[in-house]
Simulated scan of single mutants.
Amino acid sequence: MCLRHGQTLWNVEERFQGHSDIPLDETGLAQAARAASLLAALRPTVIVSSDLQRAHETALALARVAKLDVAVDKDFRERGGGAWEGLTREEIAARWPEEYVSWDAPGGESVTEVAVRVGAALRRWAARLDDDGLLVVASHGAALRLGICDLLGLPESLWPALGGLGNCSWSVLQEGRKGWRLLEHNAGTLPEPVHSDDRPDVQV
């Protein structure tokens, strides 16, 4: 399960956060507590977070309820924003109009670099699970979206088709015989059984 961190002041101000270590605001702390109360019911067995405090605080909220420790892995950091960190979208568009269109920050990480970094970390931690284990990764919007795309083996041309994650929303993935499957994306309620002619209950 991939869990995005709660709200920060920079989220509200639409500032590029990247590797900047911004804490949760009051709303973000409440979001983390709500998510924790729901996700604890799924009985996670491993919780790991980015080393940035907004993700770590979100993970700690779940860990307190689930009575687990939180491991930290810097490979789950957000996409590095280079010269854009701390700036609003309007400021970025005014100073770097061409780069803004492609969303490539000078001195920042490319989407490919982030996808490979986060995807590899997801595989590494998932490989440590017992057969009935549940991993919760507390990380960041762009990092998780790109890591999920890598995990699913999507070609880069299709990455924009996967939407973003809201604050303290999550995505649920499961590994089957033919690879990884995305069961839920940008969810804020507990997963429910799916009854469909598509047979999503079958591991394919």
Rank of each mutant, 00 (worst) to 15 (best):
T88H: 10
T88I: 05
T88M: 06
T88G: 01
E90Y: 04
E91T: 05
E91I: 05
I92M: 05
R95L: 13
P97G: 11
V101I: 13
P106K: 00
G107V: 04
G108L: 07
G108H: 08
S110L: 05
V111F: 14
V111R: 15
V114M: 04
V114H: 02
V114P: 01
V118Q: 06
A120H: 10
A121K: 01
A121M: 01
L122C: 09
R123T: 00
A126E: 05
A126T: 05
R128N: 04
D130T: 14
D130I: 01
D131H: 12
G133A: 03
G133K: 02
V136K: 06
V137S: 08
A138S: 14
A138W: 11
H140I: 01
A142T: 15
A143K: 08
L144S: 07
L144Y: 07
R145F: 02
R145E: 06
L146I: 04
G147N: 04
C149A: 14
C149R: 11
D150V: 04
L152E: 01
P155T: 00
P155F: 01
L158D: 15
L162S: 08
L162W: 04
G163A: 11
G163Q: 05
G164I: 07
G166E: 00
N167W: 07
N167K: 10
N167E: 03
C168W: 02
S169Y: 05
E175Q: 14
G176A: 13
K178T: 13
W180R: 11
R181G: 05
R181V: 14
L182D: 04
L183R: 13
L183S: 02
H185L: 08
H185F: 01
N186E: 10
A187R: 06
A187Q: 09
P191W: 11
E192V: 14
E192T: 14
E192K: 12
V194P: 06
